[in-house]
Amino acid sequence: MSIVLETQSVTKRFGGLTAVNSVDLQVPEHTIASVIGPNGAGKTTFFNCITGFYIPEEGDVLFQGASLIGIAPDKIAKLGIARTYQNIRLFNTMTVIENVMVGHHPRMKKGLIGAVLRGPSTVAEERDAYRMAMDLLRFIGLKDKADVMARNLPYGDQRRLEIARALANEPHLLLLDEPAAGMNPQETAAMTEFIRRLRDERGQTILLIEHDMRVVMGISDQVTVLDHGEKISEGPPDKVKRDPRVIEAYLGKPLEEDV
């Protein structure tokens, strides 16, 4: 099993605040790795360091062996890392299928001239992209809503559409930022199942951020716990669940609980 993503003591500071402090992490291929932690633990900042929106002050991010530091976010996407957002960020006035096709952008080639002349190769590329997008929509169960405006979808569908948009990138690594945020237990269960299918049916490598333990524990191959920007625990879900430091971070010190 090869390592898709490896971070080496990644540190990101904002002024005096250290949002991510020397975090090491490895994501092997075809697995689901999770980063959990209470709110404000630095999870999303960590994602932004991987996707190139922040440049960490120290440490390195290696993707398939090559460093990502200093590479622009769009180039990183092109290398094969796609992400979703904690607060859904779809292209609201575009249709469902168009959203997915935008996700496929880095895998397409035709530029201005191709678009204007619309020769056979452009038509073929567009058709392939369309079919790929339709396949993805079938996979997430939104085929019938392909021409609906993205903002008119119900919440759960928007979540899945966002994942489909990321999948259209054909990524080597999929970053999911709290995919179950704002969902009720049934929806959460469905989402968990969906993520599991991504790994089992499509062999997708996934790095997942969650603060909902139920999602993480059921499907993760490996869990990393962050608190105040630092890694406090790591390992298979069962082990992490029993780690006293994790329990403390989530529930507070037992003493405080009594008070």
Binding site: F53, R89, F91, M94, V102
Partner: peptide, 15 residues
């Protein structure tokens, strides 16, 4: 159009 809607996300999508 994606860029008009959300520039940051458009960039994260590889644009």
């Amino acid at each position: 159009i994606a860029m008009r809607e959300d520039e940051t996300v458009a960039q994260a999508m590889g644009i």
